[in-house]
Amino acid sequence: MANILLTNKCNRSCPYCFAKREMEESSEEDILSWENLIYIADFLKRSGQNRVSLLGGEPTIHPQFVDFVLYLLERGFDVTVFTNGILSPNRLAECREYLTKVRLDRLSFVCNLNDPVQTPAPPNESLRLQEFLSEMGPWASPGFNIYRLDFKLEFLFDHINRYGMKRNIRLGVAHPVPGKESGYIKPSGMRKVIRRLYAYRPLFDANRVSPGLDCGFPICKFTDRELGWLGRFPNPSHFSCGPAFDITPDMSVYHCFPLSNYKRRSLFEFDSMDQLFEHFAQLRQEVKSEMPGIFDECDACRYQESGVCSGGGLCQVLNRMVGEAPVRIAEVEHELDKSRMSV
């Protein structure tokens, strides 16, 4: 599935943000135009795609956010919006007027929430988030990025119940941007994260909420009991790292935020999603031939060979290379050199 970045601007500054580098290096004026949106929609349609995600920065900042959502729905796409839920009163009013009429199965929001204690926000941001969830709660499911080992999830269940949100939590580990400093979970911390996550099982079960794991979790760090629990939910978790294809307002396309500088190309160079897959499969191939995964054991792992697990996210693998392995991929080395200079 493709992610369309409506804007590079964001109204929040999260300590773990792995899109920060991309946003820092792009023009502040960059917002997606109607012409480019239509081009992307046509590109996805002829590639047989029927789902699309809208990202940013913060996508709701885009002045035509509501129009773009309505347009994509009209083109037959199911739309998922990744938002922080901090909307201006005007934008929220537009959402109320136009988006609350959309069927729940056509439009959904993943509202990335921060723990109000561990990652506090200014009071006006909290208020706006509450207002957003009060209006759009039934369309939204919470998303949570784990960037510290002592994370807490209790507040998410509270939000689900209070605002009638969808009973699914998208859980992601904060990713490193290779060569850059940001808050993220190191491979050595994976087991601790998973153990802590599983400790919330009673709350998940009691509230009838399902966990949805995003990319980057290695399967070997789960016990059979933990995997058995995850396997009981309708959308089983996966342990692979597939390219998300982020398409920026200036029509660049890359593997994902943390790898925004690797094999980045213009969407106009491609005719279909298949060609994009092929292009980014090359990046994967190059990195994996150097280093199969984030752990030494990944080298001979049967799950890695069979494609069940990708040995952590590609960005995690690449980040491991920075400190531990000689890099023999010219393009990767070049990008890492640039990163080192800017750190």
């Binding site: 012409e35 239509i38 347009y71 083109r75």
Partner: peptide, 10 residues
Amino acid sequence: LAGLRIMASL
């Protein structure tokens, strides 16, 4: 011009 493109695509 954007409006014409939007309409045609729909």
